[in-house]
Amino acid sequence: MAIQVRGVSKRFGDAVALEDVNLDVPTGSLTALLGPSGGGKSTLLRVVAGLETPDSGKVFIDGEDVTGLAPRDRGIGFCFQHYAPFRHMTVFENVAFGLKVRRRPKVETRRRVSELLELVRLEDLANRYPSQLSGGQRQRMALARALAVEPRLLLLDEPFGALDAKVRQELRSWLRRLHDEVHITTVLVTHDQEEAMDVADRLAVINLGRLEQVGTSAELYDNPVNDFVLTFVGPATRIAGRFVRPHDVTVSREPGPDGSFPAKVTRVTHLGFEVRVELELELESDDTWVQLDRDTARDLDLHIGENVFLEPRDAPGALDPNGSVTRLPAPDPEDALNHAHA
């Protein structure tokens, strides 16, 4: 294991940032810490980096207890959300900084920085200042700077948060390729589930300072341990107080054998392959929506004002195994952890 987090808790005044978090990050993996803003994921990353000291608990890197070590002794590379470029230094000097303060020979520093600038495709901009770079270029400079000291771990705090959509997409796949090339254990923080699913091979969902679930994106999507994970990872819709995937609902004109809900179609939107149907449930006149594929929608030929029946299908793990219509129990941290380590 590259990183082992054991029972880490952290408070800022009265606010709980992390509560008894346990997390394993395998060597060479690309893990995303995913969760809503203020959920504690950045704090967890900063605890691993040594930029925050946990109130309790321990952090191990490659089996070594680093809880009491300063950031510079942990062998990490850290990229800040806003890149934290050294504004008074050129791109070259920024990337060379870590080697310079470690007093590496000049020739070696020059060679290594040139290599890294080539890797992040900034070799032509080596003499520019950060203020003269675009957001994406600054991000890549920050990555090169973090990689220069040959860290055991690469920690990225919202690496694509401040970029526009197109650049974000490009950098995302670039980071993926970089990780395949360099194979350095990488942990990134993001609030964007799509980004996390796209880039990372493992996702750790964090909410309200607790680790809810860890797994691949397929595991989280198909077997969420609680409503929070279900609603946060992937689309979710609510039918009679219970959350389901909007494509895991059967729409028919006849009532099903058990547990189907009468509803009135209020809107049908054709989005290419996907057809989005908005409905009003008879029960409590709740609004909901379901997702149909094009063929199913054509067969059904739904019209506004029509009465239909909705039957949530049992997606694996997404629903209560008993098939009851009651809401799933509130997330239990122990349960989440068991799942996380399963």
Binding site: A49, L51, P71, I76, F86, G98, V101, R145, A148, V149
Partner: peptide, 23 residues
């Protein structure tokens, strides 16, 4: 300017004095 540049220097291996003088 905030503390991010100083923290970045710390993660890159700079000691307190180096951070003061260089950042």
């Amino acid at each position: 300017i905030g503390t991010e540049q100083e923290q970045a220097a710390a993660t890159l291996g700079a000691g307190p004095l180096q951070t003061l003088m260089r950042i």
